[in-house]
Design a protein around this nucleic acid. Structure first.
Ligand SMILES: Cc1cn([C@H]2C[C@H](O)[C@@H](COP(=O)(O)OP(=O)(O)OP(=O)(O)O)O2)c(=O)[nH]c1=O
Ligand SMILES: [Mg+2]
Ligand SMILES: [Mg+2]
Length: 1046
DNA sequence: CATAGTGGCGCC
DNA sequence: GGCGCCAA
């Protein structure tokens, strides 16, 4: 067993600062695209994805570009979006177990990443919708191919490509190729670079151009295979690539050349740099009195280190010069799987049964996802962290406690959490009660991590066909509707009946209600047996795999568990040709066995061999196949020990050759009986912990002219001033100076490959890349068309059903029941609420038997209100309401200073906006005044009264308090009822929102440069929207002696 | 209450 | 291990 605990954030040595090409691919308005794909009628219409929808139409978490054009933004409420854009379609995130469920977006993100991964295994997923790709090797490979004439780059096909600092991509091509052909010693592009760096920097621009053509193909593949559009940033490191990506969206890609970093940085707000978008960035700006990234260059490294610390100082010093040494750490899967839920305000948890209920809901989701993770990723989480926020003495206290994760069963996970919170709370139960919780709970989160790779026995085989399994399961769920009995696979899916045993076993193992992790693991040997012994027709014939030394046997291939898929195979062929352009004739397109084998082995390779990215796929294929066969006992009978040794040594030798290093230990041990496939794979990876950029620079020494030759300009008119018209493509040459690693491996391997080539030589398709480019080109045109279109929207007459009105009317009718303070306002589900109310004394709704739902509130005989002795207001006479009220007093007191500072901060921001942002400044000031006027308070609240939206108790509260103190008032902006003492803060909230809205309108997307006003917007935006979380995090022990208020 | 739910990583 | 920061 090995813990997949890879140290992260490794850095390159400074000497290799300009050696890489890094791509950042980010999906455009991702969740929206996912929804559009599921419901194509939404395409083109303004649309947003919301979470929940009871309160003001739900919170918007993604907005498509049609809706953005109308001013709709993330953070808005559904209702606000409707104001901005009445025809907007609001799609809800599915609610499962009464909480938002993001599964479909995770799945979609994975689909995309699988496509991306085909282009390089040096892929680091950075979020659900984006990934960094280190495509240095791919670029170098293509560079070499251009050098020998086997690839022709056609810049006119980069219509969707932008280059920072250049008016057009054509201009970029012309400039950098000219400069490369006729280097000017004092070209001003290089004025900021040291003499010795200039040749590297000059080459980097050409490499970026090559990278752009690859990026185009990658994005095309993503679109073709997933239907999703994305944008990309193309530069020399992660920070620059990320920055570039955001400059042109959607469906565009942006090159950020080293030579134009300074120009960009001179007006680029510091906050635009990843890592400087929040407090630290603000701190840097404030301490140094600067705004733009470029201004950092005026400080010495020592100065920066002194002000911040050594690490940050050096980082800042480098970043402002466009240098970022952090490597792309290959990682496909999340390191933790978690879920959480807030219980704000009245929704807070005040009874153990409710707590248990929610812990079970969360644990069930975690459990489900962890079990799926076993199948998908062949690993098992060993550790869990439980996060919770409690309100203690009117302060929100956040705590985190961890425990070993010994079972994936929900009740065990929930039980562990329950123990943890009890053990870490001084007074858990309210004195005198064994059901009421002393400190209301406002947040629960469970997360599982510290994954260990499972023993390979069947586990890895699962990994191999995890995709198929998942897809079949999905299909099954869709086709069979809700009558699925997951315990009985035979009833699940007629499609699956014809499928392999292993799928059934898999499904069963995952969904069987009472199986524990331990059991699941025990089942694996059995499952494996079923897979291996599965009855299949056995033909015996030899199959040859390109780049491989192993004589594959068709019989063995047939036993491999991955289903042959025509579509996938075509991808694999493309992929294979792409990775091996010089072997483009190697792969016989009609040889299903070959394709299938590669599929299998590449699946394995892609999921577990990230660190082997430098290795020829043929070799990976052999290694993986060999181990797989060995592991599966497929070849056991036929393969003698000598053969085994020979093969393993062969693979070992070739790995060594590929990497120019000696593995620390022989991989022959991988074939020991005890050795597992997973361990084998990770050991290989460990052994191949090579310097990825080893010897990179020298590869480019002599390859300049010929590569330029192969940047062909077919449409010089498009390129405008393109001066270069090239003639015939040079014939492929045997060029020993060609840099690419795969081409420079030992002759024996090359010979082998050549031999294979000559044997399998069939259809040569020289134009495969051209095809891709053409596709890309067309997209580019259509995008532009789309972009220039007026966003005239069809107004749909779909009625907006107002759940609240209907619901509240019913509540009104049920005058005799006083329940309100317990009925969740953010549990939007109508049915749920109705059940709660109308049936709550007879139904078995979980709440009905809980302590906190049996509080005095339900007893009409008791006094309804008590007087607050601080403000004299009438408060509902239940512990929660009292506590909430007290909380408001407390919050008010402690936040007064904060709010003052906050308002001062706003004023400062607005008044300090200067010259280039004059426009904004004026507007902001105006707005500020406008809002202030609005704040002038109306005492006649009755005109804002909306009885239909009030609950019984709320109505009562109004009636009770209207004559005396204005305990509850109505905000004249949103018409919400707000407690009097909270009104100032509430109005600040509106002020912030209004400002943000106004500023959003002014945020005109820029193409090739970033204007300062964008800065002002962002800074303001973040300052305004990021209100201080009102949660304090302290060791719980700090509150052991705190008195309990209630 | 006034995005919420989620994930990675650094510091101590 | 627990907490805080940062981000999509
Ligand atoms: C920023 C952010 C994103 N998300 C989700 C929804 C987004 O669709 C998804 C990706 O985030 P982003 O990539 O930041 O945004 P986006 O893909 O919606 O739009 P674009 O990249 O074109 O600007 O992650 C959240 O749930 N919460 C957030 O705070
Ligand atoms: Mg995105
Ligand atoms: Mg993103």
């Amino acid at each position: 067993m090995s813990t997949n605990n890879v140290t992260s954030k490794k850095c390159l040595p400074m000497s290799k600062k300009y050696d890489r090409i890094v791509l950042l691919v980010d999906m455009d308005c991702f969740y929206c695209q996912v929804e559009e794909k599921l419901n194509p009628s939404l395409k083109g219409k303004p649309m947003a994805v919301v979470q929940y929808n009871a309160w003001k139409g739900g919170g918007i978490i993604a907005v498509n570009y049609a809706a953005r054009a109308k001013g709709v933004t993330r953070h808005m409420r559904g209702e606000e979006a409707k104001v901005q854009c009445p025809e907007i379609e609001l799609i809800s995130v599915p609610s499962v177990r009464e909480k938002a469920d993001l599964t479909k977006y995770r799945d979609a993100g994975k689909d995309v990443a699988i496509v991306l991964q085909r282009f390089t295994t040096v892929l680091q997923r950075a979020s659900v919708d984006e990934a960094y790709l280190d495509i240095t090797d791919v670029v170098n490979k293509r560079f070499a191919a251009m050098n020998d004439g086997t690839f022709i780059l056609k810049p006119q096909e980069l219509l969707n490509t932008y280059a920072v600092g250049f008016p057009s991509i054509g201009n970029f091509v012309t400039t950098v190729t000219n400069d490369f052909l006729y280097p000017q010693p004092h070209e001003k592009m290089y004025k900021n670079f040291s003499e010795e760096d200039i040749p590297t920097v000059r080459r980097s621009n050409i490499r970026l151009l090559v990278a752009a053509s690859i990026a185009s193909e990658i994005r095309s593949a993503v679109f073709k295979e997933t239907g999703y559009e994305c944008s990309a940033g193309i530069s020399l490191n992660k920070v620059l690539a990320k920055l570039a990506c955001g400059l042109n969206k959607p469906n565009k890609q942006t090159i950020l050349p080293l030579t134009h970093v300074n120009e960009l940085f001179s007006t680029l707000p510091l906050s635009k740099i990843q890592g400087l978008g929040a407090k630290f960035g603000e701190d840097v700006c404030q301490q140094l009195g600067i705004r733009y990234v470029g201004q950092l260059q005026t400080f010495t490294e020592a100065e920066l280190q002194r002000k911040f610390d050594d690490k940050n100082g050096t980082w800042l010093y480098n970043i402002c010069r466009g240098i970022d040494l952090e490597i792309v750490t290959p990682r496909f899967y999340a390191k933790s799987i978690g879920c959480c839920k807030k219980f704000p305000g009245r929704n807070c948890i005040t009874g153990v049964k409710t707590l248990h209920h929610w812990l079970m809901e969360l644990a069930n989701e975690i459990s489900e996802r962890l079990k799926e993770d076993i199948v998908q990723n062949n690993r098992c989480a060993k550790h869990m962290v439980f996060n919770f926020v409690q309100e203690i003495s009117n302060v929100d206290i956040s705590s985190s406690r961890s425990a070993p994760l010994k079972s994936y069963e929900a009740d065990i996970i929930a039980g562990t959490c329950m123990e943890l919170i009890k053990a870490n709370t001084k007074v858990f139960f309210r004195p005198g009660s064994n059901g009421a919780i002393n400190n209301p709970i406002k947040f629960l989160g469970i997360s599982a991590g510290k994954f260990e790779t499972l023993s390979s026995k069947s586990g890895t085989i699962q990994t191999m066909f995890a995709q198929q399994t998942a897809k079949l399961q999905k299909l099954a769920n869709e086709n069979i509707s809700s009558t699925i009995n997951s315990e009985n696979v035979e009833t699940v899916n007629p499609l699956m009946k014809s499928k392999d045993m292993d799928l059934k076993v898999c499904k069963k193992a995952v969904t069987e209600p009472n199986n524990t992790v331990e059991k699941l693991f025990k089942n694996q040997s059995e499952r494996k047996k079923q897979i291996i012994d599965g009855d299949r027709s056995a033909l015996t014939s030899q199959v040859h795999i390109e780049g491989s030394d192993i004589p594959y046997d068709k019989k063995d291939i047939d036993k491999l568990p991955v289903e042959y898929s025509k579509e996938m195979s075509e991808c694999v062929i493309d992929d294979y040709k792409y990775i091996n352009p010089e072997h483009k004739d190697v792969c016989p397109p009609n040889n299903n066995d070959t394709i299938k084998t590669i599929n299998n082995c590449r699946t394995l390779a892609s999921s577990q061999l990230a660190a082997m990215s430098q290795v020829h796929p043929g070799i990976v294929c052999d290694a993986a196949y060999f181990i797989l066969c060995k592991e599966s006992n497929v070849v056991k009978d036929r393969m003698k020990n000598e053969d085994e040794k020979q093969y393993s040594e062969n693979i070992c030798d070739r790995l060594k050759n590929e990497n120019s290093i000696t593995p620390q230990k022989s991989i022959t041990h991988l074939f020991d009986k005890q050795s597992t496939l997973s361990n084998s794979i990770s050991d290989i990876a460990d052994n191949l912990n090579i310097s990825a950029y080893h010897d990179k620079s020298k590869h480019f020494e002599n390859s300049g002219l010929s590569i330029i030759k192969n940047i062909r300009s077919n449409k010089s008119d498009y390129l405008g001033s393109a001066k270069l018209q090239f003639t015939e493509i040079s014939k492929p040459v045997e060029d020993n100076t060609v840099a690419y690693r795969w081409s420079s491996v030992k002759n024996e391997v090359c010979k082998d490959i050549n031999k294979v080539e000559s044997v399998n030589n069939t259809n040569i398709n020289n134009n495969s890349s051209d095809c891709k480019n053409n596709i890309n080109l067309e997209q580019g045109f259509s995008d532009n068309t789309l972009e220039n279109m007026n966003h005239t929207q069809i107004i749909t007459d779909k009625e907006q059903v107002n759940d609240n009105c209907e619901l509240e009317q019913l509540i009104q009718d049920l005058k005799t029941i006083q329940n309100e303070s317990k009925t969740s306002s953010e549990q939007p589900n109508k049915k749920r609420k109705l059940d709660d109310i109308s049936d709550n004394f007879k139904s078995k709704d979980y709440r009905s038997e809980y302590v906190e739902f049996a509080l005095p509130t339900f007893n009409t005989e008791l006094e309804l209100y008590i007087k607050c002795d601080k403000c004299g207001a009438n408060i509902f006479n239940n512990p929660e309401a009292i506590q909430t009220h007290n909380d408001h007093h407390f919050a008010h007191e402690i936040s007064q200073q904060q709010r003052h500072e906050y308002r001062e901060h706003l004023r400062m921001k607005i008044s300090s906006a200067k010259s280039p942002t004059n426009n904004i400044k004026t507007k902001a000031k105006k707005l500020f005044k406008k809002i202030n006027v609005k704040q002038s308070w109306s005492t006649d609240i009755t005109k804002f009264l909306k009885p239909s939206t009030l609950t019984v108790s709320e109505q009562k509260a109004i009636n009770e308090s209207a004559s005396s103190e204005s305990f509850v008032e109505f905000c004249n902006i949103c018409k919400d009822q707000i407690k009097g003492e909270d009104m100032t803060e509430h109005r600040d909230y509106h002020l912030a929102k209004e400002l943000q809205k106004e500023l959003n309108k002014l945020d005109v997307p820029k193409v090739n440069s970033v204007k300062p006003k964008s800065n002002t917007h962002k800074n303001l935006n973040s300052s305004l929207t990021l209100r201080k979380p009102n949660v304090i995090s302290k060791p719980i022990t700090a509150f052991f002696t705190q008195p309990n208020d209630i």
